[in-house]
Design a protein around this nucleic acid. Structure first.
Lengths: 253, 253
DNA sequence: GTCCTCGCGG
DNA sequence: CCGCGAGGAC
Protein backbone atom coordinates (compact mmCIF):
# COMPACT_ATOMS: atom_id res chain seq x y z
CA UNK A 1 0.00 0.00 0.00
CA UNK A 2 1.63 3.18 -1.28
CA UNK A 3 0.51 6.60 -0.04
CA UNK A 4 1.71 9.98 -1.35
CA UNK A 5 1.24 13.51 -0.01
CA UNK A 6 1.97 16.47 -2.29
CA UNK A 7 1.44 20.21 -2.13
CA UNK A 8 0.99 20.89 -5.84
CA UNK A 9 0.68 24.71 -5.68
CA UNK A 10 -2.22 24.83 -8.16
CA UNK A 11 -3.69 21.60 -9.49
CA UNK A 12 -4.60 23.44 -12.68
CA UNK A 13 -0.93 24.14 -13.45
CA UNK A 14 0.32 20.81 -12.11
CA UNK A 15 -2.28 18.40 -13.51
CA UNK A 16 0.14 16.86 -16.03
CA UNK A 17 2.70 16.34 -13.25
CA UNK A 18 0.09 14.60 -11.10
CA UNK A 19 -1.02 12.39 -13.98
CA UNK A 20 2.63 11.46 -14.62
CA UNK A 21 3.08 10.58 -10.95
CA UNK A 22 -0.03 8.39 -11.05
CA UNK A 23 1.17 6.65 -14.19
CA UNK A 24 4.79 6.18 -13.12
CA UNK A 25 4.24 5.20 -9.48
CA UNK A 26 0.67 3.91 -9.40
CA UNK A 27 0.19 4.90 -5.74
CA UNK A 28 -2.91 3.61 -3.95
CA UNK A 29 -3.73 6.93 -2.30
CA UNK A 30 -2.62 10.49 -3.04
CA UNK A 31 -3.33 13.49 -0.81
CA UNK A 32 -3.00 16.88 -2.51
CA UNK A 33 -2.77 20.33 -0.95
CA UNK A 34 -3.03 23.82 -2.42
CA UNK A 35 -5.18 22.72 -5.33
CA UNK A 36 -6.37 26.36 -5.65
CA UNK A 37 -9.32 25.05 -7.63
CA UNK A 38 -13.01 25.60 -6.88
CA UNK A 39 -14.97 22.33 -6.75
CA UNK A 40 -16.85 23.08 -9.98
CA UNK A 41 -13.53 23.22 -11.83
CA UNK A 42 -11.88 20.18 -10.20
CA UNK A 43 -10.40 17.96 -12.97
CA UNK A 44 -12.42 14.86 -12.00
CA UNK A 45 -12.62 13.41 -15.50
CA UNK A 46 -8.88 13.46 -16.18
CA UNK A 47 -8.16 11.83 -12.80
CA UNK A 48 -10.89 9.23 -13.20
CA UNK A 49 -9.62 8.39 -16.65
CA UNK A 50 -6.28 7.75 -14.94
CA UNK A 51 -8.00 5.16 -12.74
CA UNK A 52 -8.60 7.15 -9.55
CA UNK A 53 -11.60 8.00 -7.42
CA UNK A 54 -11.56 11.59 -6.24
CA UNK A 55 -12.69 13.61 -3.24
CA UNK A 56 -12.01 17.32 -2.93
CA UNK A 57 -12.68 20.45 -0.96
CA UNK A 58 -11.54 23.51 -2.82
CA UNK A 59 -11.95 27.23 -3.20
CA UNK A 60 -10.89 29.95 -5.64
CA UNK A 61 -7.36 31.37 -5.28
CA UNK A 62 -6.10 29.71 -2.11
CA UNK A 63 -5.86 26.46 -0.20
CA UNK A 64 -7.86 23.45 -1.34
CA UNK A 65 -7.27 19.77 -0.59
CA UNK A 66 -8.04 16.54 -2.46
CA UNK A 67 -7.69 12.79 -2.12
CA UNK A 68 -7.19 10.41 -5.05
CA UNK A 69 -7.61 6.67 -4.56
CA UNK A 70 -7.83 3.49 -6.58
CA UNK A 71 -10.42 2.22 -4.08
CA UNK A 72 -13.73 3.88 -3.13
CA UNK A 73 -13.53 6.94 -0.88
CA UNK A 74 -16.04 6.82 1.99
CA UNK A 75 -17.22 8.93 4.94
CA UNK A 76 -15.79 12.19 3.62
CA UNK A 77 -15.41 15.08 6.05
CA UNK A 78 -14.29 18.59 5.14
CA UNK A 79 -14.99 20.65 8.26
CA UNK A 80 -12.79 20.96 11.31
CA UNK A 81 -15.01 21.14 14.41
CA UNK A 82 -14.30 24.38 16.22
CA UNK A 83 -13.54 26.12 12.92
CA UNK A 84 -16.92 25.42 11.36
CA UNK A 85 -17.34 28.96 9.99
CA UNK A 86 -13.83 29.12 8.51
CA UNK A 87 -14.07 29.55 4.72
CA UNK A 88 -10.53 28.21 4.15
CA UNK A 89 -10.49 24.71 2.70
CA UNK A 90 -7.68 22.98 4.58
CA UNK A 91 -8.95 19.59 5.74
CA UNK A 92 -10.26 16.50 4.00
CA UNK A 93 -10.78 13.23 5.89
CA UNK A 94 -12.03 10.01 4.34
CA UNK A 95 -11.98 6.24 4.78
CA UNK A 96 -10.37 4.06 2.14
CA UNK A 97 -10.27 0.29 2.51
CA UNK A 98 -10.62 0.58 6.28
CA UNK A 99 -7.85 3.18 6.58
CA UNK A 100 -8.74 6.67 7.79
CA UNK A 101 -6.91 9.30 5.76
CA UNK A 102 -6.74 12.82 7.22
CA UNK A 103 -5.33 15.26 4.67
CA UNK A 104 -4.36 18.66 6.07
CA UNK A 105 -2.99 21.93 4.72
CA UNK A 106 -1.95 23.56 7.99
CA UNK A 107 -1.72 27.38 7.73
CA UNK A 108 1.67 28.81 6.90
CA UNK A 109 1.56 31.47 9.61
CA UNK A 110 3.71 34.02 7.74
CA UNK A 111 5.72 35.25 10.76
CA UNK A 112 5.74 34.35 14.44
CA UNK A 113 3.48 36.79 16.27
CA UNK A 114 1.49 37.89 13.20
CA UNK A 115 -2.29 37.60 12.80
CA UNK A 116 -1.72 34.70 10.47
CA UNK A 117 0.43 32.99 13.08
CA UNK A 118 -2.42 33.32 15.59
CA UNK A 119 -4.71 31.67 13.02
CA UNK A 120 -2.19 28.83 12.61
CA UNK A 121 -2.21 28.31 16.39
CA UNK A 122 -6.03 28.30 16.51
CA UNK A 123 -6.09 25.81 13.65
CA UNK A 124 -3.66 23.45 15.39
CA UNK A 125 -5.62 23.79 18.62
CA UNK A 126 -8.74 22.71 16.72
CA UNK A 127 -6.93 19.88 14.92
CA UNK A 128 -5.68 18.11 18.04
CA UNK A 129 -9.06 17.18 19.62
CA UNK A 130 -10.49 16.36 16.18
CA UNK A 131 -7.66 13.97 15.62
CA UNK A 132 -7.98 12.40 19.07
CA UNK A 133 -11.61 11.73 18.23
CA UNK A 134 -10.76 10.36 14.80
CA UNK A 135 -8.18 7.99 16.29
CA UNK A 136 -10.72 6.69 18.78
CA UNK A 137 -13.06 5.85 15.92
CA UNK A 138 -10.48 4.72 13.36
CA UNK A 139 -7.44 3.06 14.90
CA UNK A 140 -5.83 2.63 11.48
CA UNK A 141 -5.19 6.25 10.48
CA UNK A 142 -2.72 8.38 8.54
CA UNK A 143 -2.45 12.11 9.11
CA UNK A 144 -0.65 13.65 6.18
CA UNK A 145 -0.18 16.86 4.26
CA UNK A 146 1.62 20.15 4.35
CA UNK A 147 2.12 20.90 8.06
CA UNK A 148 4.23 24.04 7.54
CA UNK A 149 6.31 22.81 10.49
CA UNK A 150 9.90 21.55 10.36
CA UNK A 151 9.85 19.33 13.47
CA UNK A 152 13.56 19.41 14.35
CA UNK A 153 16.87 20.93 13.33
CA UNK A 154 17.68 17.97 11.07
CA UNK A 155 14.66 18.99 8.98
CA UNK A 156 16.21 22.39 8.16
CA UNK A 157 19.15 23.13 5.84
CA UNK A 158 20.43 25.92 8.11
CA UNK A 159 19.00 25.54 11.62
CA UNK A 160 20.82 28.57 13.01
CA UNK A 161 19.31 30.86 10.38
CA UNK A 162 15.83 29.43 10.90
CA UNK A 163 15.89 29.22 14.73
CA UNK A 164 12.65 30.58 16.15
CA UNK A 165 11.44 31.59 12.66
CA UNK A 166 8.14 30.55 11.12
CA UNK A 167 7.86 26.75 10.66
CA UNK A 168 10.71 26.26 13.18
CA UNK A 169 9.52 27.98 16.36
CA UNK A 170 9.39 26.03 19.62
CA UNK A 171 5.65 26.55 19.81
CA UNK A 172 5.07 25.02 16.37
CA UNK A 173 7.41 22.12 17.10
CA UNK A 174 5.58 21.51 20.38
CA UNK A 175 2.33 21.22 18.41
CA UNK A 176 3.94 18.63 16.16
CA UNK A 177 4.97 16.62 19.24
CA UNK A 178 1.43 16.86 20.64
CA UNK A 179 0.10 15.33 17.44
CA UNK A 180 2.62 12.48 17.70
CA UNK A 181 1.63 12.05 21.37
CA UNK A 182 -1.88 11.13 20.25
CA UNK A 183 -0.41 7.85 19.08
CA UNK A 184 1.14 8.68 15.71
CA UNK A 185 4.62 8.22 14.37
CA UNK A 186 6.57 10.34 11.91
CA UNK A 187 6.85 7.56 9.33
CA UNK A 188 9.72 8.85 7.12
CA UNK A 189 11.78 9.97 10.12
CA UNK A 190 11.29 6.63 11.89
CA UNK A 191 12.67 4.80 8.87
CA UNK A 192 15.50 7.29 8.16
CA UNK A 193 16.60 8.93 11.41
CA UNK A 194 19.55 10.79 9.85
CA UNK A 195 18.36 11.80 6.37
CA UNK A 196 17.19 15.40 6.05
CA UNK A 197 14.44 14.48 3.55
CA UNK A 198 13.53 18.06 2.65
CA UNK A 199 10.14 18.42 0.97
CA UNK A 200 9.99 22.17 0.24
CA UNK A 201 12.38 24.68 -1.29
CA UNK A 202 11.50 28.35 -1.77
CA UNK A 203 11.08 29.35 -5.40
CA UNK A 204 13.35 32.33 -4.75
CA UNK A 205 17.14 32.53 -4.77
CA UNK A 206 17.57 29.19 -6.50
CA UNK A 207 16.87 27.53 -3.17
CA UNK A 208 16.41 24.07 -4.70
CA UNK A 209 19.70 24.16 -6.61
CA UNK A 210 21.51 25.29 -3.46
CA UNK A 211 19.92 22.61 -1.30
CA UNK A 212 18.16 25.18 0.90
CA UNK A 213 15.21 22.97 1.88
CA UNK A 214 12.90 22.25 4.80
CA UNK A 215 10.97 19.10 5.71
CA UNK A 216 7.49 20.48 6.30
CA UNK A 217 5.33 17.87 4.50
CA UNK A 218 4.63 14.83 6.63
CA UNK A 219 2.97 11.44 6.80
CA UNK A 220 2.10 10.32 10.33
CA UNK A 221 0.83 6.79 10.90
CA UNK A 222 -1.10 5.32 13.79
CA UNK A 223 0.38 2.72 16.11
CA UNK A 224 -0.27 -0.63 14.46
CA UNK A 225 0.43 0.37 10.85
CA UNK A 226 3.70 -1.10 9.61
CA UNK A 227 5.87 1.27 7.58
CA UNK A 228 8.02 -0.63 5.06
CA UNK A 229 9.76 2.47 3.75
CA UNK A 230 9.24 6.18 3.21
CA UNK A 231 10.89 9.07 1.43
CA UNK A 232 10.67 12.14 -0.77
CA UNK A 233 10.36 12.07 -4.58
CA UNK A 234 12.67 14.92 -5.55
CA UNK A 235 12.29 14.03 -9.24
CA UNK A 236 9.01 15.93 -9.32
CA UNK A 237 10.82 19.09 -8.11
CA UNK A 238 13.42 18.73 -10.91
CA UNK A 239 10.90 19.03 -13.72
CA UNK A 240 9.74 21.97 -15.81
CA UNK A 241 7.51 24.41 -13.90
CA UNK A 242 7.61 22.40 -10.69
CA UNK A 243 5.67 22.89 -7.50
CA UNK A 244 7.83 24.30 -4.72
CA UNK A 245 7.06 21.07 -2.80
CA UNK A 246 8.12 17.51 -3.62
CA UNK A 247 5.84 14.51 -3.00
CA UNK A 248 6.37 12.58 0.23
CA UNK A 249 5.53 8.88 0.23
CA UNK A 250 5.16 5.87 2.51
CA UNK A 251 4.90 2.19 1.73
CA UNK A 252 2.68 0.44 4.28
CA UNK A 253 2.60 -3.32 4.83
CA UNK B 1 14.45 37.90 -51.69
CA UNK B 2 12.08 36.57 -49.04
CA UNK B 3 10.10 38.93 -46.78
CA UNK B 4 7.88 37.93 -43.87
CA UNK B 5 5.37 39.91 -41.79
CA UNK B 6 4.16 38.50 -38.47
CA UNK B 7 2.14 39.80 -35.56
CA UNK B 8 3.75 37.74 -32.77
CA UNK B 9 1.51 38.91 -29.88
CA UNK B 10 4.46 39.32 -27.46
CA UNK B 11 7.99 38.77 -28.69
CA UNK B 12 8.93 37.67 -25.19
CA UNK B 13 6.56 34.70 -25.36
CA UNK B 14 7.17 34.00 -29.06
CA UNK B 15 10.96 34.41 -29.28
CA UNK B 16 11.55 30.67 -29.75
CA UNK B 17 8.96 30.60 -32.54
CA UNK B 18 10.65 33.53 -34.27
CA UNK B 19 14.08 31.90 -33.97
CA UNK B 20 12.65 28.69 -35.43
CA UNK B 21 11.17 30.63 -38.34
CA UNK B 22 14.53 32.31 -39.00
CA UNK B 23 16.32 28.97 -38.89
CA UNK B 24 13.80 27.03 -40.96
CA UNK B 25 13.06 29.63 -43.62
CA UNK B 26 16.05 31.97 -43.54
CA UNK B 27 14.02 34.98 -44.74
CA UNK B 28 15.92 38.09 -45.77
CA UNK B 29 13.63 40.50 -43.94
CA UNK B 30 11.10 39.98 -41.15
CA UNK B 31 8.65 42.63 -39.94
CA UNK B 32 7.17 41.97 -36.50
CA UNK B 33 4.16 43.59 -34.83
CA UNK B 34 2.86 43.53 -31.26
CA UNK B 35 6.26 42.85 -29.78
CA UNK B 36 4.94 44.27 -26.45
CA UNK B 37 8.55 44.76 -25.41
CA UNK B 38 10.21 48.00 -24.29
CA UNK B 39 13.39 48.78 -26.25
CA UNK B 40 15.64 48.09 -23.25
CA UNK B 41 14.36 44.52 -23.12
CA UNK B 42 14.39 43.81 -26.85
CA UNK B 43 16.14 40.43 -27.43
CA UNK B 44 18.84 41.85 -29.71
CA UNK B 45 21.52 39.32 -28.74
CA UNK B 46 19.44 36.22 -29.46
CA UNK B 47 18.40 37.62 -32.86
CA UNK B 48 21.91 38.77 -33.76
CA UNK B 49 23.24 35.34 -32.82
CA UNK B 50 20.71 33.97 -35.31
CA UNK B 51 22.36 36.14 -37.98
CA UNK B 52 20.00 39.13 -38.12
CA UNK B 53 20.39 42.87 -37.76
CA UNK B 54 17.59 44.40 -35.72
CA UNK B 55 15.65 47.65 -35.55
CA UNK B 56 12.79 48.17 -33.14
CA UNK B 57 10.35 50.65 -31.67
CA UNK B 58 8.64 49.23 -28.62
CA UNK B 59 6.80 50.05 -25.44
CA UNK B 60 5.60 48.19 -22.34
CA UNK B 61 2.34 46.20 -22.56
CA UNK B 62 1.05 47.15 -25.99
CA UNK B 63 1.97 47.59 -29.66
CA UNK B 64 5.65 47.58 -30.63
CA UNK B 65 7.18 46.90 -34.07
CA UNK B 66 10.54 45.52 -35.20
CA UNK B 67 12.47 44.68 -38.36
CA UNK B 68 14.99 41.85 -38.66
CA UNK B 69 17.32 41.68 -41.64
CA UNK B 70 20.36 39.80 -42.85
CA UNK B 71 21.61 43.05 -44.42
CA UNK B 72 22.23 46.38 -42.68
CA UNK B 73 19.15 48.40 -41.71
CA UNK B 74 19.46 52.09 -42.67
CA UNK B 75 17.50 55.34 -42.37
CA UNK B 76 15.22 54.16 -39.60
CA UNK B 77 12.06 56.14 -38.90
CA UNK B 78 9.62 55.47 -36.06
CA UNK B 79 7.32 58.50 -36.07
CA UNK B 80 4.30 59.05 -38.25
CA UNK B 81 4.12 62.75 -39.20
CA UNK B 82 0.82 64.14 -37.98
CA UNK B 83 0.84 61.76 -34.99
CA UNK B 84 4.14 62.97 -33.59
CA UNK B 85 2.89 63.11 -30.00
CA UNK B 86 1.29 59.63 -30.11
CA UNK B 87 2.98 57.36 -27.55
CA UNK B 88 1.84 54.20 -29.34
CA UNK B 89 4.64 52.46 -31.19
CA UNK B 90 3.03 51.35 -34.46
CA UNK B 91 5.37 52.29 -37.29
CA UNK B 92 8.91 51.40 -38.26
CA UNK B 93 10.36 52.35 -41.64
CA UNK B 94 13.86 51.50 -42.82
CA UNK B 95 15.92 50.94 -45.95
CA UNK B 96 17.49 47.55 -46.59
CA UNK B 97 19.55 46.92 -49.73
CA UNK B 98 17.82 49.77 -51.55
CA UNK B 99 14.34 48.57 -50.59
CA UNK B 100 12.18 50.78 -48.37
CA UNK B 101 10.38 48.67 -45.76
CA UNK B 102 7.43 50.28 -43.97
CA UNK B 103 6.23 48.09 -41.11
CA UNK B 104 2.87 49.07 -39.60
CA UNK B 105 0.64 47.90 -36.81
CA UNK B 106 -2.56 49.70 -37.74
CA UNK B 107 -4.93 50.19 -34.77
CA UNK B 108 -7.56 47.51 -34.28
CA UNK B 109 -10.41 50.00 -33.75
CA UNK B 110 -12.41 47.72 -31.43
CA UNK B 111 -15.89 48.61 -32.85
CA UNK B 112 -17.09 50.87 -35.62
CA UNK B 113 -18.01 54.23 -34.12
CA UNK B 114 -15.99 53.82 -30.92
CA UNK B 115 -13.24 56.17 -29.73
CA UNK B 116 -10.69 53.56 -30.80
CA UNK B 117 -12.26 53.43 -34.24
CA UNK B 118 -11.86 57.22 -34.53
CA UNK B 119 -8.18 56.76 -33.60
CA UNK B 120 -7.83 54.10 -36.31
CA UNK B 121 -9.28 56.53 -38.86
CA UNK B 122 -6.93 59.32 -37.73
CA UNK B 123 -4.01 56.91 -37.97
CA UNK B 124 -4.93 55.84 -41.51
CA UNK B 125 -5.41 59.49 -42.49
CA UNK B 126 -1.87 60.20 -41.28
CA UNK B 127 -0.44 57.09 -42.95
CA UNK B 128 -1.61 57.92 -46.47
CA UNK B 129 0.34 61.20 -47.03
CA UNK B 130 3.36 59.71 -45.23
CA UNK B 131 3.32 56.81 -47.63
CA UNK B 132 2.85 59.00 -50.68
CA UNK B 133 5.96 60.88 -49.58
CA UNK B 134 7.88 57.68 -48.94
CA UNK B 135 7.00 56.34 -52.40
CA UNK B 136 8.23 59.53 -54.01
CA UNK B 137 11.56 59.08 -52.26
CA UNK B 138 11.85 55.31 -52.49
CA UNK B 139 10.20 53.81 -55.57
CA UNK B 140 11.08 50.29 -54.42
CA UNK B 141 8.92 49.95 -51.31
CA UNK B 142 6.99 47.36 -49.34
CA UNK B 143 4.24 48.36 -46.92
CA UNK B 144 3.56 45.43 -44.63
CA UNK B 145 2.20 44.51 -41.25
CA UNK B 146 -1.02 43.99 -39.36
CA UNK B 147 -3.54 46.28 -41.07
CA UNK B 148 -6.56 45.12 -39.04
CA UNK B 149 -8.51 45.37 -42.31
CA UNK B 150 -9.93 42.47 -44.29
CA UNK B 151 -10.00 44.09 -47.74
CA UNK B 152 -12.80 42.06 -49.33
CA UNK B 153 -15.37 39.35 -48.64
CA UNK B 154 -13.00 36.62 -49.84
CA UNK B 155 -10.75 37.59 -46.94
CA UNK B 156 -13.40 36.68 -44.36
CA UNK B 157 -14.61 33.20 -43.40
CA UNK B 158 -18.21 34.40 -42.99
CA UNK B 159 -18.72 37.69 -44.84
CA UNK B 160 -22.39 37.99 -43.91
CA UNK B 161 -21.61 37.78 -40.18
CA UNK B 162 -18.77 40.31 -40.49
CA UNK B 163 -20.48 42.77 -42.85
CA UNK B 164 -19.93 46.31 -41.63
CA UNK B 165 -18.17 45.05 -38.50
CA UNK B 166 -14.72 46.16 -37.38
CA UNK B 167 -11.98 45.21 -39.88
CA UNK B 168 -14.67 44.78 -42.58
CA UNK B 169 -16.49 48.12 -42.74
CA UNK B 170 -16.77 49.97 -46.03
CA UNK B 171 -14.79 52.87 -44.58
CA UNK B 172 -11.85 50.64 -43.60
CA UNK B 173 -11.92 48.85 -46.94
CA UNK B 174 -11.93 52.22 -48.71
CA UNK B 175 -8.76 53.15 -46.80
CA UNK B 176 -7.13 49.94 -47.98
CA UNK B 177 -8.00 50.84 -51.57
CA UNK B 178 -6.58 54.35 -51.12
CA UNK B 179 -3.29 52.82 -50.03
CA UNK B 180 -3.27 50.59 -53.13
CA UNK B 181 -4.10 53.65 -55.24
CA UNK B 182 -0.78 55.19 -54.21
CA UNK B 183 0.86 52.65 -56.50
CA UNK B 184 0.97 49.49 -54.41
CA UNK B 185 -0.33 46.03 -55.06
CA UNK B 186 -1.69 43.44 -52.66
CA UNK B 187 1.05 40.91 -53.39
CA UNK B 188 -0.50 37.67 -52.04
CA UNK B 189 -3.92 38.48 -53.55
CA UNK B 190 -2.39 39.30 -56.94
CA UNK B 191 -0.72 35.90 -57.02
CA UNK B 192 -3.68 33.96 -55.59
CA UNK B 193 -6.93 35.70 -56.55
CA UNK B 194 -9.19 32.96 -55.17
CA UNK B 195 -7.41 31.66 -52.05
CA UNK B 196 -8.74 33.05 -48.78
CA UNK B 197 -5.24 33.13 -47.19
CA UNK B 198 -6.46 33.96 -43.67
CA UNK B 199 -3.74 35.29 -41.38
CA UNK B 200 -5.61 35.74 -38.10
CA UNK B 201 -7.93 33.55 -36.04
CA UNK B 202 -9.41 34.69 -32.73
CA UNK B 203 -8.06 32.77 -29.75
CA UNK B 204 -11.64 32.31 -28.58
CA UNK B 205 -14.12 29.63 -29.54
CA UNK B 206 -11.51 27.42 -31.20
CA UNK B 207 -11.62 29.76 -34.18
CA UNK B 208 -8.49 28.31 -35.79
CA UNK B 209 -9.71 24.69 -35.62
CA UNK B 210 -13.05 25.77 -37.10
CA UNK B 211 -11.42 27.75 -39.88
CA UNK B 212 -12.92 31.05 -38.69
CA UNK B 213 -10.16 33.29 -40.02
CA UNK B 214 -9.64 36.73 -41.52
CA UNK B 215 -6.93 38.04 -43.84
CA UNK B 216 -5.84 41.22 -42.04
CA UNK B 217 -2.03 40.97 -42.33
CA UNK B 218 -0.73 42.24 -45.64
CA UNK B 219 2.32 42.82 -47.79
CA UNK B 220 1.88 45.56 -50.38
CA UNK B 221 4.59 46.09 -52.99
CA UNK B 222 5.36 49.08 -55.18
CA UNK B 223 4.94 49.03 -58.94
CA UNK B 224 8.15 47.65 -60.35
CA UNK B 225 8.81 44.96 -57.73
CA UNK B 226 8.25 41.49 -59.13
CA UNK B 227 6.39 39.09 -56.87
CA UNK B 228 7.38 35.46 -57.52
CA UNK B 229 4.99 34.03 -54.96
CA UNK B 230 3.31 34.84 -51.68
CA UNK B 231 1.33 33.09 -48.99
CA UNK B 232 0.61 32.41 -45.34
CA UNK B 233 2.65 30.08 -43.12
CA UNK B 234 -0.10 28.39 -41.12
CA UNK B 235 2.43 25.99 -39.56
CA UNK B 236 3.36 28.66 -37.04
CA UNK B 237 -0.27 28.89 -35.91
CA UNK B 238 -0.39 25.08 -35.39
CA UNK B 239 2.36 25.04 -32.78
CA UNK B 240 2.25 25.10 -29.00
CA UNK B 241 1.27 28.49 -27.52
CA UNK B 242 0.92 30.14 -30.92
CA UNK B 243 0.32 33.77 -31.76
CA UNK B 244 -3.22 34.40 -32.97
CA UNK B 245 -1.65 35.53 -36.27
CA UNK B 246 0.27 33.45 -38.82
CA UNK B 247 3.26 34.85 -40.73
CA UNK B 248 2.58 36.23 -44.23
CA UNK B 249 5.39 36.04 -46.78
CA UNK B 250 6.39 37.19 -50.25
CA UNK B 251 9.19 36.07 -52.52
CA UNK B 252 10.48 38.97 -54.63
CA UNK B 253 12.58 38.61 -57.77
C1' DG C 1 9.94 33.16 -8.08
C1' DT C 2 5.76 31.27 -9.07
C1' DC C 3 1.22 31.01 -8.18
C1' DC C 4 -3.55 33.37 -7.97
C1' DT C 5 -6.99 37.52 -9.01
C1' DC C 6 -8.67 41.27 -11.81
C1' DG C 7 -9.16 44.63 -15.58
C1' DC C 8 -7.59 45.88 -20.00
C1' DG C 9 -6.74 45.11 -24.99
C1' DG C 10 -7.17 42.10 -28.78
C1' DC D 1 -8.61 32.78 -25.21
C1' DC D 2 -4.26 34.86 -24.37
C1' DG D 3 -1.18 38.46 -23.66
C1' DC D 4 0.19 42.33 -20.08
C1' DG D 5 0.39 44.76 -15.33
C1' DA D 6 -0.67 45.26 -10.50
C1' DG D 7 -1.27 43.46 -5.90
C1' DG D 8 -1.25 39.60 -2.47
C1' DA D 9 0.35 35.08 -0.68
C1' DC D 10 3.86 31.93 0.38
Amino acid sequence: MNIVSWNVNSLNVRLAHVLDLLREQAPDIVALQETKTPDERFPRDALRDAGYEVAFSGQKTYNGVAILSRQPILDIETRLPGMADDPQRRLLAATIGGLRVVNVYIPNGQAVGSDKYAYKMRWLAALEPYLADQLSRYPALVLLGDFNIAPADIDVHDPARWRGKIMCSDEERAWFQRLLALGLKDAPRTRHPDKPMFSWWDYRLNAYRRGWGLRIDHILTSGDLIVRDAGVDVGMRERERPSDHAPVWVELA
